[in-house]
Amino acid sequence: MHDLAIRTEDLTKSFGEIRALAGLDLEVARGEIFGLVGPDGAGKTTTMRLLSGLLRPDAGRAEVAGLDVVERTEDVRRLLGYLPQTFAMLHELTVAENIEYFADLYCIPRGQFAQRSDELLSATGLTEFTGRRADALSGGMGQKLALICSLIHRPQVLLLDEPTRGVDPVSRRDLWRIVYGLPAEDVTVLISTPYADEAERCNRLGVLVDGILQTVGTPQDLVARQTSRPIELQATEQRLARNALEKLGGVETVAVVGQALRITVRRDGPGPEEVLKALDGAGVEATEAHWAQPRLADALLAIAERCGKDG
């Protein structure tokens, strides 16, 4: 068996003028939960579609479990599970019928299928709803069903493209509980997410911006690599404070977190006291400025912002 579940080399794909993916070199180890994060249009979906053989690369190559995706597409598909971002079940079919449909597509022996199906249904809490039509499911339940369908054939590698988009926190927890259990079943997961708190749950992360892999590492690595430090403060006139802070030298990102303002400042940038002084000088009332614990969200925002400015 291969130790690398996914390996891409110089993977490139353009759509007309738009360069969706520019020379992606990615290695995902077997049994990993690897998160692909980055802004909209960064190339996450394109990567997944290239890996599942739905798109043909312009250049470079991709391997899944050691098999070339272009040359051995059908073999790759047999051991791949894929949950597309805009995936919908077959509307008129019930939960059970949808699962059966996918079991048939992957030719799961009947005996195995019943057991596997029961197992996944109870893990997602959908057992009671097997007779319900897919178009009568809520968003969260629909995504759980989609996840079951993508797992029914026990794939070695699972691609999940923003599986929790529009899903409420309760269903989100259920979905993640299943994802967490997958490495124990020897399933490698490549998951994309727009949410920092979900990115935190991955073993490793790749940050993709404008089709280029900016950085790879554990969530802790990404936080540690941050050159800027976060400061939190309170301001009565949030808008004025935001505008003033954005113009302040040494400030990298400005974000509102809850009712507080959270900024990241470069090493040579101002500290909490200087920030308050500067705001006071601009006639903006602000209080309680203090160094804050660095977070993954800061790091992701900073990377996206830096690249956005370059582009």
């Binding site: 599942s52 598909r77 597309p84 995936f87 996918f102 992957y106």
Partner: peptide
């Protein structure tokens, strides 16, 4: 209909010929 409804992508990514 499947392309529009969103069920096509998973069908296409399966081993079906």
């Amino acid at each position: 209909r499947e392309r529009e409804g969103g069920s096509f992508e998973a069908l296409a990514a399966s081993p079906i010929a």
